[in-house]
Design a protein around this nucleic acid. Structure first.
Length: 454
RNA sequence: CGGGGUGUAGCGCAGUUUGGUUUAGCGCACCUGCUUUGGGAGCAGGGGGUCGGAGGUUCAAAUCCUCUCACCCCGACCA
């Protein structure tokens, strides 16, 4: 892609509305633009990143045997009334009426809809288990949208819903999804922790949250370096300095433990607990029969009895991962995309457009890279080199090929890594070898598809 | 919803206290020309705002008053 033919409106100054790096950099790098509070457009560069994240998620979902489908955003109120959440959700739900004054909502989540769908056609244990997922836009009228994409009112989410005969089967799928979520975050290249968490409005017995560690995260999490215990701050258990379990401080709603403080010890092994901040990007639940009972989703089991489907649900925030990645991977110059989700792999910078020999050579190198299936952003703009360097830092493409005086003198390309600023010299002939090595070093291959194993 | 804050050109801001020489200004960005091009270039010329909106006070309002809208931050809340 030629920069001059793409649309990357970068900003030199920090927009006044942005408080944290992920928000400010997403705006400055030309990934997003705000339309209203908590509502954003994705510009071409941001959209490319979203697609990268989606693809990794899709591959890992498919590899667990989950099947992709697509549900509507607009959902009739009847289903929500049956589940009781038409009331429960309150003003956080965007509601609307059709021309016949019938109530609808813009889906904040899809448990009701998928359960309805499944109840129509899944009648026998022979069809179970099944795990269905979609990558969809969600609408939640947050009390206070903030931090750009981190808490938006319209956002993109992958949500999966599993249906099983019993808890044993649910346990199997739950574990698969747990592992797939870990794999997704590892492939993207983010530091994260999995914690036990409250189930909130979704319901169910217990759940795990996937937290990307970041200073500006809204969530606090507690973990033990000793035994590996980890939990959302709200759910965490600890022993205070006195050696007794905290009883007299602020008690949370279960009443059997309290919020830990710095210096408190792990309830399991006694080591000192650590408290960190994170961004919740995924949450998986064992729902049991909460929705299948209410929405009458039953199947005939092998014993001839009608039983409610045992459900699980699994959500991961696609647009939130984009923001969380920036939050975790940036410096004072801009974003540092991990190669897995970078919008482009190589950024060619030609220091001047006026030198014919140089632009001829860079055209040729651009072509070479494209033939090697490398995603290239070729900065062919007729602007000063400084602008190209600054934009390149800001946008955060992993590798930079610099073509300037040195190339004219010695036919060597200066290759610079965005991550650490390290430079190497490269001859045109060795480009294929260089690319191959880079790709090998940076690729975490998709987990093999369960379907193709059979 | 409670508390705090901000709305002046695409972005960042000054001007508002004390109404009037400001035909509303500056930097960046944008357009034209020439010179430049290895870290946000230089010179010259140029385009763009009616000051969030409505109403009011006044000879006169970006500036004072009333109402209203939007956005941001803290809190409660939240996957």
């Amino acid at each position: 892609m030629k920069f001059s033919q793409f649309f990357i409106p970068t900003l030199k100054e920090v927009p006044s509305e942005a408080e944290i790096p992920s928000h400010s950099l997403a705006l400055r790098a030309g990934l997003i633009r705000k339309v209203a509070s908590g509502i954003y457009s994705f510009l071409p560069l941001g959209f490319r990143i979203l697609k990268k994240i989606e693809e990794i998620i899709r591959q890992e979902m498919n590899s667990t045997g989950a099947i992709e489908l697509f549900l509507p955003v607009i959902q009739p109120s009847d289903l929500w009334k049956k589940s009781g959440r038409w009331k429960e959700y309150g003003p956080e739900m965007f509601r609307l009426k059709d021309r016949n004054k019938r109530d609808f909502c813009l889906g904040p989540t899809h448990e009701e809809l998928i359960t309805y769908l499944v109840h129509l056609d899944l009648k026998s244990y022979k069809n179970l288990p099944v795990n269905l997922y979609q990558i969809q836009v969600k609408f939640r009228d947050e009390i206070r949208p903030r931090y750009g994409l981190l808490r938006a009112r319209e956002f993109i989410m992958k949500d999966a819903y599993s249906f099983c005969r019993n808890n044993d089967d649910l346990e199997v799928i739950y574990k698969k999804m747990y592992n797939a979520y870990c794999r997704i975050l590892e492939r993207i290249g983010l530091q994260y922790k999995v914690v036990e968490a409250d189930t909130g409005l979704i319901g169910g017995k217990f759940s795990h949250e996937f937290m990307v560690l970041a200073e500006n995260g809204e969530e606090r999490l507690v973990f033990c370096p000793g035994c590996g215990y980890s939990a959302n701050y709200e759910m965490s258990k600890s022993i205070s300095e006195s050696g007794k379990e905290n009883k007299d401080k602020k008690i949370n709603k279960w009443g059997d433990f309290t919020y830990p403080e710095q210096g408190d010890r792990c309830i399991n092994c006694g080591k000192e607990l650590k408290i960190e901040k994170g961004i919740e990007i995924g949450h998986i639940f064992k729902l049991g029969d909460k929705y299948s009972e209410k929405l009458d989703a039953r199947f005939l089991d092998v014993d001839g009895k009608l039983k409610p489907l045992v459900m699980g649900c699994y959500g991961i925030g696609v647009s939130r991962i984009l923001a969380a990645a920036i939050e975790q991977l940036h410096d004072d110059k801009g974003i540092i995309w991990p190669p897995s989700i970078a919008p482009f792999t190589v950024n060619i910078i030609v220091t001047t457009e006026k030198n014919k020999e140089l632009s001829k050579a860079s055209d040729m190198i651009y072509k070479t890279l494209k033939e090697l299936n490398v995603e290239v952003l070729y900065d062919d703009r007729d602007v000063s080199a400084g602008i190209k360097f600054k934009d390149s830092d800001l946008i955060g493409i992993p590798i930079r090929f610099i073509l300037g005086r040195k190339f004219l003198d010695s036919r060597l390309i200066d290759v610079e890594y965005r991550k650490d600023g390290k430079k190497v010299e490269l001859s045109v002939d060795s480009i294929p070898k260089f690319i191959k090595e880079f790709e090998t070093a940076n690729s975490l291959k998709p987990t093999q598809d369960e379907q193709s194993k059979k």
